[in-house]
Simulated assay, not measured.
Amino acid sequence: MTNKNGFGALPIQRISDAEAVKLLRRAYDRGITFYDTARFYTDSEVKIGLAFKGMRDKVYIASKTAAVTPEAFWKDLETTLNNLQTDYLDIYQFHNPDFCPKPGDGSGVYECMLKAKEQGRIRHIGITNHRLKVAEEAIDSGLYDTLQFPFCYLATEKDIALVKKCEKADMGFISMKALSGGLINNSAAAYAFQAQYENVLPIWGVQREEELDEFLSYIDHPPVMTEELRQVIDHDREELCGNFCRGCGYCMPCPAGIKINDCARMSLMIRRAPTQMQLTADMQKMMMKIEDCLHCNQCMEKCPYELNTPELLQKNLKDYKEILAGKEILSNKETQF
């Protein structure tokens, strides 16, 4: 069985350079060779550059640009290569564009990709997205080597069809959100699901050694789809499928200061994580911000999953208050809503 472990480097923004280098080198030493980052992930690229300086030929590195003009493209690429201390990227990806870049579309950015590839600065052209329409257009275009798209065992039939469509088009499929932003808490079931698809490589977002070691253990002892794991998946699909927030953050920032990508999934998180972590005074203040909603609907317009975000926030706030009341936390005036 192919090693279904890629390293998603977004979370290493939250740890120090030394901690990140230690984590990245541990991943490499134990068998992970694919690392995905982005210009958007603050110092993530810098940390990968520090970890793999002098051993560039030992790893595969993918990064992303959100550029929509040639000027921004070349600036991003130069910055990324400098940060990573390399002169090439294995994959350079358009980062969640709301259109599918193509030659002659007027933006000029796909032409930049082609030129960078001719120069040897990138080896493969990829695209990431959260929109089925853009993802399908990218596959149909024949212009891309890889597609990065959310994919986990909560996937819809349309998501699974997208994976199969990529395989038929001889495109690699990089699976982001393989744990659905923390809603999936059974890594063995998550891994076994991904392993069913030959052309899929999940990138696990980790920032702690114990999280990393869990996935590293699957290299020598990969989970297979057993009846027990299938029951876990069936239970989670029943509980979580539907109109839930994936936590992608593309609705942000909120003009009212609401942390939408945390607040809109609180009802689910509070049932799947240690409860007290979600009931602190700071978390209660965060949820209270929902009452400041301006109903401007900017979040709805930006949501790639077409969720009614304001309605979802209100439902989560109502549920949260009921949970607090049930925990008898409202006796303290400071914690009252």
Score class of each variant (00 low, 15 high):
T2A: 11
K4T: 07
R14S: 14
L24Q: 02
T33P: 14
A38S: 12
E45G: 05
K47Q: 09
G54A: 08
T69D: 12
P70M: 01
N82S: 15
N83K: 10
L89C: 09
Y92W: 11
Y92G: 02
P97I: 00
P103Y: 05
V109G: 11
E111N: 03
Q119C: 05
I122W: 02
G126D: 11
H130G: 02
V134P: 08
A138V: 01
S141Q: 04
A161Y: 00
L162T: 01
K164I: 00
D170T: 09
G172N: 09
F173C: 04
G181F: 11
I184P: 15
N185Q: 14
A189W: 06
A190H: 01
L212S: 04
D213F: 09
Y218R: 07
I219K: 14
H221K: 12
H221S: 12
T226W: 13
E227W: 11
E228Y: 13
I233G: 11
D236E: 15
E239Y: 07
F244T: 15
C245N: 11
G249F: 08
Y250E: 03
C251P: 10
C254I: 00
D262T: 03
C263S: 14
A264V: 07
M269T: 06
A273Y: 11
Q284M: 12
Q284W: 14
M287V: 03
D292I: 05
C293P: 13
L294Q: 11
L294W: 07
E311N: 13
Q314I: 13
I323N: 06
A325V: 07
E328A: 04
E328R: 09
I329Y: 10
